[in-house]
Design a binder for these strands. Sequence first.
DNA 1: GATAAACTCCGGTTGC
DNA 2: TGCAACCGGAGTTTA
Length: 290
Amino acid sequence: MPELPEVEGVVQALKPEIEGRTIKQVQLSEIIRFSFSEGKQCIVKQSEPDAFEMALTQMTIQKIERRAKYIFFHLLKEDVSYILVSHLGMTGAWFVVNSPEEIGEAKFKKHIHATFQMTDGGYLIYSDIRRFGELRFLAQLADHAPLTKMAPEPFDEAASDFFIAKSLLPKYEKKAVKEVIMDGQVISGCGNIYATEALFAQKIHPARKMNRISEKRKRQLFEAIVAVLRQSIEAGGSTISDYRNINGGAGSMQNRLKMYGKKICPECGTDTSQMTIGGRTSVFCPNCQH
DNA sequence: GATAAACTCCGGTTGC
DNA sequence: TGCAACCGGAGTTTA
């Protein structure tokens, strides 16, 4: 499942391939169309499928950037700018190919949901096995309110102070630390994998209440999150489950994970424990983490 | 009104 | 071999 480092890898791979190119034609899948006719917004949000395809035709992709776990495609048509917001959900993947047939893995080829044919030939393709991802065409980010409520990028100078301030709010102070750090309105881009790793690195129990952690420890935890995110970006992300980069390739961070998905603590050899926190499976060492 | 918990989307994977 | 249970970002709905 793609988290911030994986999305960063996708964006870095897409940039040289796609920036500056113009979309000739867009084709959405029959599943998207059928779901829409049933009243559901499958992958494509806030737009009718026909309107989405029409709107993106002749758009030039000026710039691609990552924000939290989102990909922003900055678009331009007839001097007016727009944004295509993409979230990969659990199983979304982008491919840049000369023909859709080039997608090697059957399960990705089978679940193609958006095909962007470019004016210079070639295709930008969005595939999504479980359809948890989203494509949202907007005139401006404010047209989707949650995007304006995101915490700053964890690498921003102000992000640590932002985290401290948020953690003191009544809404968060009595919650489990893991639930808080995974909230995109508190810290951007920290999903289950990296929250698990950072809490283990800091020997903090994932269920510990926020108000039972000192400011100093909170700042240390924040730094641990930033460190593990940076390390993972350098390693090309974690290849777990259905994440692939745009070449269908794999990162290596999964080999460096110390607690996520582990049965035994690598530090002390104790069997790890599991519990559900904020609706998510959480792994920790009952001996090391307090 | 603010907050929280429940619910929704889905198919590959796992376990019986 | 078949089949039900399970999992999870982020948004929406219900309590």
